[in-house]
Nucleic acid binder design. Structure first.
Length: 579
RNA sequence: UCGCCCAUAGCUCAGCGGUAGAGCUCCUCACUUUUAAUGAGGAAGUCGUAGGUUCGAAUCCUACUGGGCGAACCA
């Protein structure tokens, strides 16, 4: 535990005073609420009568205390509203403690209170709650950073420290109101998709996160161990192979919002755990799926923004249907002027060289094409665009193209220079699927750490027969980033993965006392740099004795008694015993 | 994993070899419609951690820790 700051000590002292007044700072109670800040601010003007007896709870922010009447602001889940507290209303009798002491002195910014009263408008025209009563519902012991705003909406002292915001998201949500909105949008986005798919009769399902064989994507997994079964399990990197098993089982359409886990690098586009939606629909193909994606994402944009146009960075992205469509070969020709559709591996290598695309020996034909596309096309695709017909080598789970066996029936939607979805006509030929897995095994032997492993049970399922099926995966985090104009994935995850804070373990008040240090000497030792028990372990008794006496004098602590040298020696012995 | 940048009071930041600073927050006092409330007074710091250079380091150097941004890998 960190030593308490001056302000935290003040709040703990206030907590004691509150208890001494017979007030429970953490009462076990429900507080009935009949209004929200947003509701009052929006509707008071048109219906004043409805707000004469309101009851509202929230967190105190921004106090403006004056003599016998004070203003403050209370923040609930919908926003902030001003409250007005008058001494003689809160305390009609002789005893003015509740206002003079409790309200004015013992409440702090961050405290959670419940209030009752009536709504009125101040001289300045601000809609305000005139309090009849207030009740402390939870005392806040840790001060929030204070962010202030003026009438024009300018923000002062905004907390911009990303480390603070990501590690203490709970505080970030309280002090930066736009953050809450991002996460509301994220949920809304998923709900729009869920409604869209449910309306069409597709079934939302759950499949295993702990998998004995990881599959369905090319990625390195997290590995764990089940004790009772004494076996290795992997956290899923995708749920594709399980959803297809369900299509074999006879469902026409299944989907799952799936937390997936990939043990790879982190960046502003990558978190070790992330969310995808995967959807599989029987008797459909990738052309059909393209239309579904267009329509569903257009609906998401409309629901979140009221228009298909979404601002992203300094661009405006328009999700209005129909989106532009390119085959991969067309896209490469469009952006580089080179037609690679007839090239063999050697010619592709030459082209990659000419186009300054980095490549190495392990890359086959498919990988080379993918690299050229990734380097020269993908970053330039800002407006939503479908890229179709990928090389077969890159897509071991996709069905071969009906017109060209070197290609697969696959598409990705690219938006703002990044992939937002990946879909194909699913490979349902068990013989071909086995062969493709074999090719992946070969790649694995060549050193590709992300090559897929062969899943016998999945092949057995395919052997029973899977109908022609269209499959889709959409990165929810990436799509949310676009829909909320976030530049980092951490801004759309409540609790993005962080390294541990790993602060040194500071000695508590009790630690000092336990080793025999008199309480009033603790500040002296801290001034000398003795913050942890480890500091004592490294110290010599003679030097510490001299330093303590010297520092006590320097700090002019006349009432504090110097320790004897024997006492100092005992401290150091006690520390050794503790260890 | 590699490269560049950042770390000073609870928050936002200044200081960049010579006594640790400002605004807000906090504390005390005044104030019955204030609103970035106001007026007066006050308190608050392991200058990320550990070494080094120096008469002297928040400031210069090195390493480490944490964060950000690029690259690599990927979605």
């Amino acid at each position: 535990m960190q030593p308490l700051s001056e302000q935290e000590l003040v709040r703990r002292k206030k907590l004691e005073e509150i208890k001494q007044l017979g007030i429970d700072p953490y009462p076990a109670t429900s507080f009935p609420v009949n209004a929200t800040a947003k509701d009052i601010l929006e509707n008071y003007d048109t219906n004043e009568q409805a707000y004469q007896q309101i009851s509202l709870a929230g967190r105190l922010m921004n106090f403006r205390i004056s003599g016998a009447a004070s203003f403050a602001e209370i923040q609930d889940s919908t926003g902030r509203i001003q409250i007005y507290a008058r001494r003689d209303d809160l305390c009609p009798g002789e005893d003015k403690t509740l206002y003079n002491t409790v309200f004015k002195k013992l409440l702090d910014i961050g405290d959670i209170i419940g209030v009752t009263g009536y709504v009125f408008k101040t001289k300045m025209g601000e809609i305000t709650i005139h309090l009849n009563t207030f009740q402390l519902l939870s005392k806040s012991l840790k001060p929030f950073p204070v962010v202030r705003r003026d009438d024009e909406g300018n923000v002062y002292d905004e907390v911009t420290d990303l480390e603070f915001r990501y590690r203490q998201r709970y505080a970030d949500l309280v002090i930066n109101p736009t953050v809450k909105d991002v996460f509301r949008k994220r949920t809304q986005l998923m709900n729009v998709m869920r409604d869209y798919l449910n309306e069409r009769g597709y079934l939302e399902v759950e499949t295993p996160i702990l998998q004995p064989i990881y599959g369905g994507a090319a990625a390195r997994p997290f590995k764990t161990h089940h004790n009772t079964l004494d076996m290795t399990l992997y956290l899923r990197i995708a749920n594709e192979l399980y959803l297809k098993r369900l299509i074999v089982g006879g469902y026409d359409g299944v989907y799952e919002f799936s937390k997936d886990f990939r043990n790879e690098g982190m960046s502003r586009f990558h978190n070790p755990e992330f969310t995808q939606i995967e959807l599989y629909v029987a008797y459909k193909d990738y052309q059909w799926m393209m239309n579904l994606v267009e329509e569903m994402i257009e609906q998401v944009a409309l629901a979140l923004h009221g228009t298909t146009e979404v601002p992203v960075g300094d661009q405006v992205i328009n999700f209005k249907r129909p989106w532009k469509r390119f085959t991969m070969f067309e896209a490469i020709e469009h952006f580089t002027g080179i037609d690679i559709s007839q090239m063999d591996e050697a010619a592709l290598r030459e082209t990659a060289k000419k186009l300054d695309v980095p490549f190495d020996k392990t890359m086959g034909k498919g990988k080379l094409i993918d690299e050229i596309f990734g380097e020269h096309c993908e970053p330039k695709l800002i407006q939503p665009t479908f890229i179709t017909d990928y090389p077969v080598e890159m897509s071991p789970l996709a069905l071969r193209h009906r017109d060209n066996p070197d290609l697969v029936e696959r598409f990705e939607a690219i938006c703002n220079g990044k992939e937002i979805c990946n879909a194909f006509s699913e490979l349902n030929d068990p013989i071909d699927q086995r062969q493709r897995f074999q090719e992946q095994l070969e790649l694995g032997k060549r050193g590709d750490e992300e090559a897929m492993i062969l899943d016998e049970d999945f092949l057995r399922a395919l052997e029973y027969g899977m109908p022609p099926t269209a499959g889709l995966g959409i990165g929810i985090d990436r799509l949310t980033m676009i829909m909320t104009n976030a530049s980092s994935i951490q801004d759309v995850l409540f609790f993005p993965q962080m390294k541990p804070e790993n602060k040194p373990v500071l000695a508590t008040q009790e630690d000092y006392i336990n080793i025999g240090v008199a309480e009033d000497l603790i500040p002296v030792l801290q001034k000398l740099g003795f913050w942890t028990l480890e500091d004592f372990r490294k110290a010599s008794a003679n030097k510490l004795f001299n330093d303590v006496c010297g520092m006590r004098k320097k700090m002019k602590l006349k009432e504090v008694k110097n320790p004897t040298k024997e006492e100092v020696e005992k401290w150091l012995e006690a520390v050794e015993v503790e260890a």
